[in-house]
Design a protein around this nucleic acid. Structure first.
Length: 776
DNA sequence: GCTTAGGTTTTG
């Protein structure tokens, strides 16, 4: 849009003059001066009729008078406007308007002697990259900005320096769509990469949602102007500074180079078009580009995916969750849940909701996403990022269904973005939605449930499992094969302790939420406890910040130390002690380090790069572990805890003996022992209700790894393993099945007595049993 | 004017 009228209300413009432009005095408009990023301002005292030059180019000439130098002999200058811009200007320029001319070409005026004006004239044209902005100050006059692009310098990501404000290009590697921050602004986090292969994570704030980059997917290309570079946690970070502006482009090779921006004033020239095209090509050959986006027809249980869809209904559910009803024209192959809401709370066209009832899915959004979800308009097109599909079954259902959740928080870019109808993906979606034959989906509804099962993969899987399970067992014994089966009735009538081999079906189990089965076990005092949540660790780390590192404990014979103070207001002191081996530092992946004064995030980051991280604090004569409610050791994703009751923490120098070993392996058990810690083990604790036609008993599963062939320590931080465990349980105990259709399990159980003053009870525990290989 | 968040899945 070469010419644009910008409204000015009560003397304030909606858009301010680009901040890089500076006013230039008439007397400085001379050859040899640098006029980049300068503008000249004057009042239109004369404008000539629009004409055409010999080659057909439109031509328009105005004379501007410099009011600041109105007493000078020469106080006016000719402005020559060429091409489309001439035509556009002729429409909006009137005598008396105030004009701002920037980025002009300065040429000797051949008519200076005759007209008595300035010895040079200013030339502008769209072809030279000019854009024109007309600002309506009041009914009385306009300001016209003829803005030729200033020369911007773009810094490659490997040349960023702390404390600078730069312009840059980058390919979006990760992003969080704008969300409501806890402060006053929207926030969007964007990680970029460029051909220098350096990454930059930018934290962008703006009170106006529209002013944040319009990024719709990974691979989009952005141009940031005036972004501030700071060092944070030892890495460069970008953050919005005053005057920050962005353009976003589709990253697809060959797609039209059309910037997405909220800014009405921006420059974009051939050179920049070339840059975008080069970046697209680099990205295509150097970055892994994800395949086509998932549709509802592709969803699998227990995963996270982005969905591009249309909103057809919404409803409040409760204070912390909100319902969105969406469709994308395809049918989810699983039965999907319907969130019960009051009819009067459901917003959306009743007719549409009814027509699409078989294609639409319910997405429940939580916490911080509620506010944004509420504001969404029915009919708008959305991309919902990182929806979680969860397999679940209600008591009254025969088969399990799929639930769609958008959990709270913004991890992994979880959030909701509104896409404009001009977006190519949305154009495609719209065309597809219009082509959907609703009669088809209605026929689907009337199909028999048998036929429906064909598309329900996991049910089909269950069927095939069930077939073999008529004879075989979904579990196998790892020992005592010679023992013969005992009926449950017999076991229930016998005294404890004894061991049995049984053949039974798993009627139900607890907890149904499998993550709740993970506990910490102390093998010394035999206590079980819940796995502490991250908040507790955070709280303890925050408390430890108050103990300043003791410099006397730095750089010992067995570790090297570094210390620094954060530049934020808190002036936090952080010390890291890298444990040496043979007086040498080892490779990061082999290194154990101790950290003082770190935050949860910093500790977490260190665990990604180093083998072991031990949070410590200084005392007068040694480093010591923090409170044992916090993990005493972090390795990879796993937090290791010590038993508060059974541990007698030793000073940290006890570790030096391990460091001195030939090849320190830094095994958690070994570290725990050296530090006087009784290591807590992660275990699955579940209650299986087993039946065999003669009776029913509850047997406890107490398993570190053997039964599921999944380490209990990894389940909480590994989504894949959680999926795997859920699938296994669905095979052992298919939700909604009749007793006859349940598979058989072969197990060893042992009975044992538990007595207290009040009562005596017999308990049963599963042992030496594992899930069959073809079930896992 | 200052903060917000500072990528690393919830457990409803």
């Amino acid at each position: 849009m070469p010419v644009q009228l910008l409204k000015i209300i009560k003397g304030k413009s909606e858009t301010s003059l680009p901040s890089h432009l500076q006013k230039e005095d008439l007397k400085h408009l001379q050859e040899g001066f640098d006029h980049t990023n300068k503008y000249f301002q004057g009042i239109v005292i004369l404008s000539y009729p629009l004409t055409k030059l010999g080659d057909g180019t439109d031509f328009f000439k105005v004379v501007l008078q410099d009011l600041d130098n109105s007493c000078s002999r020469i106080n006016s200058i000719n402005i020559l406007i060429y091409g489309k811009m001439a035509e556009d200007c002729a429409k909006v320029i009137h005598n008396g308007d105030t004009c701002l001319v920037a980025g002009f070409k300065l040429k000797k005026s051949p008519t200076a002697k005759e007209d008595g004006r300035h010895g040079c004239h200013l030339e502008v044209s769209e072809e030279a990259g000019s854009a024109i902005y007309v600002r309506e100050y009041s009914v009385v006059f306009y300001i016209l900005v003829l803005s030729v692009a200033p020369k911007y310098v773009y810094t490659p990501l490997n040349h960023l320096k702390d404390g600078t404000i730069v312009n840059l290009y980058g390919i979006v590697k990760f992003f969080k769509p704008p969300y409501v921050s806890k402060g006053t602004d929207y926030c969007s986090v964007v990680t970029l990469v460029d051909p220098s292969n350096v990454k930059l994570t930018c934290t962008l704030f703006n009170g106006n949602l529209d002013s944040l980059p319009k990024i719709y997917k990974v691979g989009d290309i952005v141009r940031f102007h005036r972004i501030k570079i700071r060092e944070y946690n030892g890495q460069m970070q970008g953050i919005t500074s005053a005057g920050f502006a962005s353009l976003t482009f589709d990253g697809t090779v060959g797609a039209p180079v059309v910037p997405r921006t909220s800014s009405k004033v921006y420059t974009f020239m051939d050179e920049e078009q070339k840059t975008i095209e080069e970046l697209r090509i680099w990205a295509a050959s150097n970055l892994s580009i994800s395949g086509p986006a998932a549709k509802l027809s592709d969803v699998q249980p227990m995963l996270f995916f982005d969905l591009t869809c249309q909103l057809i209904g919404k409803a409040k559910v409760d204070g912390s969750s909100f319902l969105l009803k969406v469709w994308d024209g395809t049918k989810c192959p699983y039965p999907t849940w319907k969130v019960p809401v009051e009819a009067r709370d459901l917003e959306g066209e009743k007719v549409v909701l009814h027509q699409l009832r078989n294609l639409a899915v319910d997405i429940l959004v939580y916490d911080n996403h509620v506010q944004l979800a509420k504001s969404l308009k029915i009919g708008s097109f959305l991309r919902i990022y990182s929806i979680h599909t969860k397999q679940a079954s209600a008591d009254n259902e025969d088969v399990s269904h799929i639930e769609f959740h958008l959990h709270g928080g913004t991890c992994y870019g979880r959030g909701i973005g509104v896409l404009p109808e001009s977006n190519p993906d949305i154009k495609e979606l719209k065309a597809f939605l219009e082509s959907v034959d609703l009669a088809d989906s209605q026929r689907m509804e009337s199909m028999s449930s048998l036929e429906f099962d064909d598309t329900f993969n996991s049910v089909t899987d269950f069927e095939s499992h069930l077939e073999r399970c008529q004879q075989l067992s979904v579990t196998v014994l790892t020992d005592h094969q010679d023992l013969s089966n005992t009926e449950l009735k017999t076991i229930l009538n016998s005294t404890a302790p004894r061991q049995y081999r049984i053949r039974a079906k798993l009627r139900t189990y607890k907890p149904q939420k499998l993550y709740q089965s993970i506990k910490l076990h102390c093998s010394k005092c035999n206590s079980l406890q819940e796995v502490p949540d991250g908040d507790k660790f955070d709280f303890i780390l925050r408390g430890s910040v108050n103990t300043a590192p003791n410099p006397e404990l730095h750089n010992t014979s067995w570790y090297d130390s570094v210390m620094w103070t954060t530049r934020d207001q808190k002036q936090r002191k952080i010390a890291i002690h890298f444990v040496k081996h043979d007086e040498m530092l080892q490779q990061p992946e082999d290194t154990l380090l101790m950290i003082e004064g770190g935050t949860l995030k910093e500790v977490w980051k260190l665990t990604k790069r180093f083998k072991c991280v031990i949070p410590v604090r200084s005392t007068e004569d040694d480093l010591e572990l923090l409170d044992l409610s916090a993990p005493f050791l972090l390795q990879g994703n796993i937090k290791y805890y010590g038993c508060k009751q059974c541990s007698t923490p030793k000073p940290v120098r006890s570790l030096s003996s391990i460091a001195a070993e030939q090849q320190p392996s830094w095994e958690p058990a070994e570290i725990a022992q050296a530090l006087g810690i009784e290591l807590l083990q992660y275990v699955f604790v579940m209650r299986f209700t087993l039946v065999d036609g003669t009776g029913a008993l509850n047997a406890y599963l107490f398993d570190y790894e053997k039964f599921f062939q999944i380490p209990a320590s990894e389940i909480l931080t590994n989504n894949f393993l959680q999926q795997k465990m859920q699938m296994t349980m669905n095979t052992l105990c298919p939700p909604g099945r009749k007793l006859d259709d349940l598979p058989w399990l072969e197990c060893f159980i042992k009975s044992y007595n538990v007595r207290d003053e009040m009562k005596h009870q017999v308990y049963y525990q599963i042992f030496d049993t594992t899930v069959a290989e073809d079930v896992v």
